[in-house]
Simulated scan of single mutants.
Amino acid sequence: MKASNDTRFSKFLLLGFSEEPELQPLIFGLFLSMYLITVVGNLLIILAVHSDSHLHTPMYFFLANLSFVDISSTSTTVPKMLMNIQTESKVITYASCVTQIYFFVLFAVLDVFLLAVMAYDRFVAICQPLHYMVIINPQLCRLLVLMCWTICILHSLLQTLMVLRLSFCTEVEIPHYFCELNQMIQLACSDTFLNNMVMYSAAVLLGGGPFSGILYSYSKIVSSICGISSAQGKYKAFSTCASHLSVVSLFYCTMLGVYLSSAATQSSHASAVASVMYTVVTPMLNPFIYSLRNKDVKRALKTFFVKETLRGQLS
Rank of each mutant, 00 (worst) to 15 (best):
N286C: 09
P287N: 06
F12E: 02
S190N: 03
H176F: 15
D70H: 14
L110S: 13
E180R: 02
M255V: 04
A272H: 02
S267D: 00
D52F: 01
M83H: 09
V276K: 01
L47V: 02
S262P: 00
S10G: 04
I136R: 13
C148Y: 03
V124A: 08
G257V: 08
C169V: 10
F178E: 05
S4L: 07
Q159H: 12
L157F: 12
G16H: 04
D191G: 01
T282D: 10
Y102G: 00
Q232C: 05
T192Q: 07
S223C: 06
S33V: 06
Y218G: 08
V134N: 12
D111F: 10
Q232A: 14
T87S: 13
R8G: 04
I45S: 05
G257F: 09
N137I: 06
M284H: 08
A116G: 02
A242M: 12
S267P: 01
L143F: 14
A270M: 13
R293K: 14
K80F: 13
I228F: 04
I214S: 03
S53D: 08
F31R: 06
A264R: 02
Y132D: 06
M81D: 01
S224W: 00
F305I: 01
S243M: 10
T76A: 14
V204L: 15
C97G: 06
T57W: 05
V297W: 07
L30S: 13
S275A: 13
G16W: 01
V198L: 10
A116Y: 12
A237I: 08
V163P: 02
V78H: 00
V204S: 09
I85Q: 10
F17N: 11
T7H: 11
T74P: 02
L157C: 14
S33L: 13
F61V: 06
K302L: 12
F305V: 10
I135H: 07
C189F: 03
L314R: 14
F304M: 09
I174K: 06
I45Q: 01
K234A: 15
I71N: 11
N294I: 10
L158G: 04
V145K: 11
S89G: 03
A203C: 11
E180H: 05
T38R: 00
